[in-house]
Amino acid sequence: MEIEDEIFINAPRDVVFKSLNDPEILKQCIPGCEELTKVSDTELTAKVVLKIGPVKAKFSGDVELNNEGAPDSFSLTGSGNGGVAGFAKGGADVELIEQDGGTLLKYVAKADIGGKLAQLGSRLVVSTSKKLSKSFFEEFDKAVTGGDSTPDEEEEKSGFWNKIVGD
Protein backbone atom coordinates (compact mmCIF):
# COMPACT_ATOMS: atom_id res chain seq x y z
CA MET A 1 0.00 0.00 0.00
CA GLU A 2 1.33 3.40 -0.89
CA ILE A 3 -0.07 6.80 0.03
CA GLU A 4 1.10 9.97 -1.60
CA ASP A 5 -0.07 13.44 -0.59
CA GLU A 6 1.07 16.94 0.18
CA ILE A 7 0.09 19.62 2.64
CA PHE A 8 1.03 23.27 3.00
CA ILE A 9 2.13 24.33 6.47
CA ASN A 10 2.31 27.96 7.28
CA ALA A 11 5.64 27.88 9.10
CA PRO A 12 9.29 28.16 8.10
CA ARG A 13 11.00 25.03 6.96
CA ASP A 14 13.41 24.72 9.87
CA VAL A 15 10.52 24.95 12.33
CA VAL A 16 8.66 22.25 10.47
CA PHE A 17 11.75 20.09 10.38
CA LYS A 18 12.43 20.51 14.06
CA SER A 19 8.84 19.74 14.92
CA LEU A 20 8.94 16.53 12.95
CA ASN A 21 11.69 15.43 15.27
CA ASP A 22 10.00 16.51 18.44
CA PRO A 23 8.44 13.59 20.31
CA GLU A 24 6.01 15.80 22.17
CA ILE A 25 4.59 17.28 18.99
CA LEU A 26 4.53 13.94 17.26
CA LYS A 27 2.68 12.41 20.17
CA GLN A 28 -0.01 15.07 19.90
CA CYS A 29 -0.42 14.47 16.21
CA ILE A 30 -0.24 10.69 15.80
CA PRO A 31 -3.83 9.47 15.97
CA GLY A 32 -4.28 7.18 18.96
CA CYS A 33 -0.76 7.71 20.28
CA GLU A 34 -0.52 6.92 23.96
CA GLU A 35 3.18 6.90 24.46
CA LEU A 36 6.15 8.11 22.48
CA THR A 37 9.57 7.82 23.95
CA LYS A 38 12.83 8.96 22.54
CA VAL A 39 15.49 6.29 22.84
CA SER A 40 18.18 8.16 20.95
CA ASP A 41 18.33 11.00 18.44
CA THR A 42 17.09 8.72 15.72
CA GLU A 43 15.13 6.10 17.58
CA LEU A 44 11.71 6.24 19.18
CA THR A 45 9.39 3.71 20.72
CA ALA A 46 5.67 4.15 20.57
CA LYS A 47 2.39 2.75 21.79
CA VAL A 48 -0.53 3.50 19.54
CA VAL A 49 -4.15 2.41 19.69
CA LEU A 50 -5.37 1.78 16.20
CA LYS A 51 -8.76 0.83 14.89
CA ILE A 52 -9.30 -0.43 11.41
CA GLY A 53 -12.78 -1.65 10.66
CA PRO A 54 -13.71 -4.17 13.31
CA VAL A 55 -10.17 -4.59 14.65
CA LYS A 56 -8.95 -2.41 17.46
CA ALA A 57 -5.61 -3.02 19.05
CA LYS A 58 -2.74 -1.46 20.87
CA PHE A 59 0.38 -1.51 18.79
CA SER A 60 3.79 -1.22 20.30
CA GLY A 61 6.55 -0.42 17.91
CA ASP A 62 9.86 1.13 17.07
CA VAL A 63 10.45 4.07 14.81
CA GLU A 64 13.76 4.97 13.26
CA LEU A 65 14.39 8.44 11.82
CA ASN A 66 16.79 9.34 9.10
CA ASN A 67 17.87 12.97 9.08
CA GLU A 68 20.60 12.73 6.51
CA GLY A 69 18.78 14.89 4.02
CA ALA A 70 18.01 17.68 6.45
CA PRO A 71 16.41 20.09 6.02
CA ASP A 72 15.19 19.21 2.48
CA SER A 73 14.04 15.74 3.27
CA PHE A 74 13.44 13.37 6.02
CA SER A 75 12.54 9.72 6.24
CA LEU A 76 11.37 7.27 8.80
CA THR A 77 10.79 3.56 9.03
CA GLY A 78 8.94 1.66 11.66
CA SER A 79 7.26 -1.51 12.65
CA GLY A 80 4.59 -2.25 15.15
CA ASN A 81 3.08 -5.32 16.66
CA GLY A 82 -0.52 -5.50 17.75
CA GLY A 83 -0.47 -9.03 19.14
CA VAL A 84 -3.42 -11.08 17.89
CA ALA A 85 -4.58 -8.12 15.81
CA GLY A 86 -1.53 -8.43 13.61
CA PHE A 87 1.38 -6.28 12.70
CA ALA A 88 2.32 -3.35 10.54
CA LYS A 89 5.54 -2.10 9.09
CA GLY A 90 6.39 0.67 6.77
CA GLY A 91 7.99 3.99 6.26
CA ALA A 92 7.62 7.43 4.83
CA ASP A 93 9.73 9.74 2.75
CA VAL A 94 9.00 13.38 3.43
CA GLU A 95 10.14 16.27 1.29
CA LEU A 96 10.09 19.82 2.64
CA ILE A 97 9.94 22.62 0.10
CA GLU A 98 10.04 26.29 0.99
CA GLN A 99 7.06 28.00 -0.54
CA ASP A 100 5.38 31.38 -0.04
CA GLY A 101 6.99 31.89 3.33
CA GLY A 102 5.78 28.53 4.51
CA THR A 103 6.58 24.92 3.81
CA LEU A 104 5.09 22.49 1.36
CA LEU A 105 5.30 19.04 2.87
CA LYS A 106 5.14 16.20 0.36
CA TYR A 107 5.08 12.65 1.57
CA VAL A 108 5.07 9.14 0.23
CA ALA A 109 4.19 6.55 2.81
CA LYS A 110 4.44 2.81 2.33
CA ALA A 111 2.98 0.23 4.63
CA ASP A 112 2.55 -3.51 4.83
CA ILE A 113 0.16 -5.02 7.25
CA GLY A 114 -0.42 -8.57 8.35
CA GLY A 115 -2.46 -10.75 10.61
CA LYS A 116 -6.08 -10.16 11.50
CA LEU A 117 -5.78 -6.53 10.46
CA ALA A 118 -5.04 -7.58 6.93
CA GLN A 119 -7.73 -10.24 6.92
CA LEU A 120 -10.53 -8.19 8.30
CA GLY A 121 -9.56 -4.72 7.38
CA SER A 122 -8.27 -5.34 3.85
CA ARG A 123 -11.01 -3.33 2.22
CA LEU A 124 -10.67 -0.59 4.83
CA VAL A 125 -6.93 -0.38 5.18
CA VAL A 126 -6.21 2.05 2.39
CA SER A 127 -9.03 4.43 3.24
CA THR A 128 -8.25 4.27 6.94
CA SER A 129 -4.56 4.84 6.36
CA LYS A 130 -5.26 7.83 4.16
CA LYS A 131 -7.51 9.22 6.80
CA LEU A 132 -4.94 8.62 9.53
CA SER A 133 -2.12 10.25 7.64
CA LYS A 134 -4.30 13.17 6.69
CA SER A 135 -5.31 13.57 10.29
CA PHE A 136 -1.68 13.42 11.36
CA PHE A 137 -0.57 16.24 9.12
CA GLU A 138 -3.57 18.40 9.92
CA GLU A 139 -2.85 18.04 13.61
CA PHE A 140 0.79 18.68 12.85
CA ASP A 141 -0.13 21.86 11.02
CA LYS A 142 -2.11 22.99 14.03
CA ALA A 143 0.67 22.13 16.43
CA VAL A 144 3.33 23.90 14.43
CA THR A 145 1.40 27.01 13.49
CA GLY A 146 -0.72 27.08 16.64
CA GLY A 147 -3.29 27.52 13.94
CA ASP A 148 -7.00 27.45 13.90
CA SER A 149 -7.31 25.57 10.68
CA THR A 150 -10.91 24.72 10.09
CA PRO A 151 -11.95 21.51 8.41
CA ASP A 152 -12.55 22.09 4.75
CA GLU A 153 -15.77 21.42 2.98
CA GLU A 154 -14.63 18.15 1.53
CA GLU A 155 -14.04 16.68 4.91
CA GLU A 156 -17.48 17.67 6.06
CA LYS A 157 -18.87 15.68 3.19
CA SER A 158 -16.74 12.70 3.93
CA GLY A 159 -17.95 12.57 7.51
CA PHE A 160 -20.86 10.38 6.52
CA TRP A 161 -18.58 7.87 4.86
CA ASN A 162 -16.23 7.92 7.78
CA LYS A 163 -19.06 6.79 9.96
CA ILE A 164 -19.87 3.96 7.63
CA VAL A 165 -16.38 2.65 7.12
CA GLY A 166 -15.53 2.83 10.79
CA ASP A 167 -14.01 5.68 12.66
Partner: peptide
Protein backbone atom coordinates in the same frame (compact mmCIF):
# COMPACT_ATOMS: atom_id res chain seq x y z
CA UNK B 1 -1.91 -11.28 -0.86
CA UNK B 2 1.76 -11.45 -1.78
CA UNK B 3 2.69 -11.26 1.91
CA UNK B 4 0.70 -14.39 2.68
CA UNK B 5 -2.21 -12.64 4.35
CA UNK B 6 -5.62 -14.21 3.87
CA UNK B 7 -7.64 -11.46 2.23
CA UNK B 8 -10.99 -13.19 2.50
CA UNK B 9 -11.01 -14.40 6.08
CA UNK B 10 -14.48 -13.33 7.06
CA UNK B 11 -17.95 -13.37 5.59
CA UNK B 12 -17.50 -9.69 4.79
CA UNK B 13 -15.18 -10.75 1.98
Amino acid sequence: DEMGNVKTGSLMD
